[in-house]
Write a protein that binds this DNA or RNA. Structure first.
Length: 271
DNA sequence: ATCTATTCCTGGCTGC
DNA sequence: TGCAGCCAGGAATAGA
């Protein structure tokens, strides 16, 4: 599942192959594009220059020129953005460039390709990027919310970029249970959580992300951070810190991995 | 404001 | 071995 480190890796690996290149022609599977007219979109993209590529949260933003515009790509669960890949049964977007091609593949088809003249409206709704938010801002925003840590950290309007894997890993290393009320986290612990979040994301970026199901970067290469997961996908295995079996519970309809000893369930508040 | 359930989709797994 | 049935899960959506 592409989350912030995986999307960051994709952006870095495709950038040298697309920035400064021109789109000669494009074609899409209509269910992937917004606005929904794939032929109109393809026609409007033809001939345009790609001036840059960056990331906000899990969204990939490709700047266009002549005329200006923005191509926004979200990889969903199984999306891949590759340069110079052959078409296959899962190819849903294809950009022929003046040198090579940019290819979008997606098995489960939860991804999206969007075009806007100005800012993308979905991106406008995102919170600060998880790699850019400051400690104090993170702590104050967190403590102001009346919800549990797991759904809050997954909420892209709160902080953009975290998904199920990294939320579980952050909460484990912060020794916080996913059902802990955000408002009951002390300022000091919230600042600690912010530092842990940055460390984990950076470490994963350095490892090329986590390849759990079929994630690969723009070169088609897998990441290796999955080998460093301490709780995600380790249900039944021993906690590296205390030896107790990692548990899988469900929080906010999400599979959630915890060490029941290292992450104590918050005591229910009594009147 | 927050929570829950539902929808999208398909490879991979379980169980018979 | 084969096949039906279930599941994961990012994000939007509706309804409570």
């Amino acid at each position: 599942m592409p989350e912030l480190p995986e999307v960051d890796t994709v952006v870095r690996t495709i950038a040298p192959h697309i920035v400064g290149r021109r789109i000669l022609a494009a074609d899409f599977n209509s269910r992937f594009v917004t606005p929904g007219d794939r032929d109109a979109l393809a026609a409007c993209l033809g001939g345009r220059l790609m001036t840059g590529v960056r990331r906000h949260g899990k969204f990939i933003l490709i700047g266009l020129a002549e005329p200006g515009g923005l191509l926004t790509i979200h990889l969903g669960m199984t999306g891949k953005l590759l340069h110079d890949a052959e078409r296959n049964a899962y190819t849903h977007g294809y950009f022929a460039l003046d040198h090579g091609a940019l290819v979008y593949e997606d098995i489960r088809q939860f991804g999206r390709i969007e075009y806007s003249d100005g800012q993308n409206p979905r991106v406008a709704l995102l919170g600060p990027d998880a790699m850019a938010i400051g400690a104090q801002e993170f702590a104050s925003r967190l403590r102001a919310r009346d919800t549990k840590l797991k759904p809050l950290l997954l909420n892209q309007a709160f902080v953009a970029g975290l998904g199920n894997i990294y939320v579980d890993e952050i909460l484990f290393r912060a020794r916080l249970h996913p059902l802990t009320a955000a408002s009951r986290v002390t300022a000091r612990r919230a600042v600690e959580m912010h530092a842990i979040m940055g460390q984990i994301l950076l470490e994963s970026i350095e490892q090329g992300g986590s390849s759990i199901s079929d994630y690969v970067d723009g070169d088609g290469r897998k990441g290796s951070f999955q080998d460093r997961h301490r709780v995600y996908g380790r249900a039944g295995e021993s906690c590296y810190d205390c030896g107790v079996a990692i548990e899988r519970i469900v929080v906010a309809q999400r599979g959630t991995h915890i060490c029941p000893r290292c992450q104590k369930k918050p005591s229910s508040r009594r009147a």
